[in-house]
Design a protein around this nucleic acid. Structure first.
Lengths: 157, 157
DNA sequence: CTCTATTAGTAACTTCTGTTACTAAACTTG
DNA sequence: CAAGTTTAGTAACAGAAGTTACTAATAGAG
């Protein structure tokens, strides 16, 4: 019976896959968040990640940013070029190792971060609005555990 | 004090953002899953999503696939071209509406799906290995709720 | 009917991303 | 300390993805 819908014969539905649901969810949440920094502040996703990492870490090398935000060095390099052109970030030589470029947010960069964060937090608050405190804690815990596990699995291949 | 690390003065850490954690997690889980169908079966992520959607839905139009998998129609069009070239999918005219192309997995397409699914499920099982049944249920429920909420938020802009 | 508006799908252009390979500066080891 | 190796960062090319605009078909209003 070649015309019968395939799902009839097998119980497995795509939507029950954890990876699939996570992918859709992450796409969606990422789009929801990026509406803020992309549409309203003209930053790429990568630029935003660098700003956020730099704000948290303070002045560090491009490589460290890459590790912190799981982006490869070329991606970081391009985003940094963009941020420098926008005056949000400064890059200067490391006297201790002249291969390094130390990255540092400018005043404008820090100000922009402070402007964007509350907007993203408001979205997050909306997403979680209907969740009880227990549910929020449980979500945070489960995601953390999944992350650790995925990290492990990825490294083996 | 311009040199002091910025995070010292503000409590907010990037890693505590739900969207950020979700993004990292989704990237990771997606990479873990894609190691299977990309590296071992030479499918793009989009091609795999279409195969999975088609298997679940049976023969439908490209537009329906797009809605089901949240991909835009150009993305679907390109991936379908690739799948057809690989002989995994057939495309024929809809007699009821000749603008439509009805998409349908070939025998080879269905066979490939059946080969890949257990491998992905094995990875999922590994990811969830340390979770109790309650935790799994709770995770499924929380993700579902988040998805619904994100969908809402996205539509408003 | 027939003229306009919508819809499905794709082509063509532009932009973004990934890869390879290069340059400059450190390390390392005999 | 000299010659080979590794590391940080970037340039340049190639392939992928997003955007706009076009074509063919249908639906809808008068």
């Amino acid at each position: 019976m070649p015309q019968a819908p395939d799902h009839a014969s097998e119980a497995l539905s795509l939507n029950s896959f954890l990876p699939y649901r996570l992918m859709i969810l992450a796409d969606m949440v990422s789009r929801v968040a990026s509406q803020i920094y992309v549409d309203r502040f003209d930053l790429t996703r990568q630029e935003w990640r660098i700003i956020a990492s730099l704000f948290e870490l303070g002045p560090v090398s491009a490589t460290e940013i890459g590790e912190h935000s799981t982006m490869d060095k070329m991606t970081v390099s391009r985003a940094v070029t963009g941020l420098e052109a926008k005056g949000l970030l400064r890059r200067h030589d490391d006297p201790a190792d002249r291969r390094n470029k130390i990255l540092e947010l400018t005043q404008a960069g820090r100000a922009l971060y402070r402007k964007i964060v509350p907007l993203i937090l408001a979205r997050e608050a909306y997403l979680l609005e209907n969740f009880s405190p227990e549910e929020r804690a449980s979500l945070a815990h489960l995601l953390e555990a999944l992350l650790a596990r995925a990290r492990e699995l990825e490294q083996r291949g």
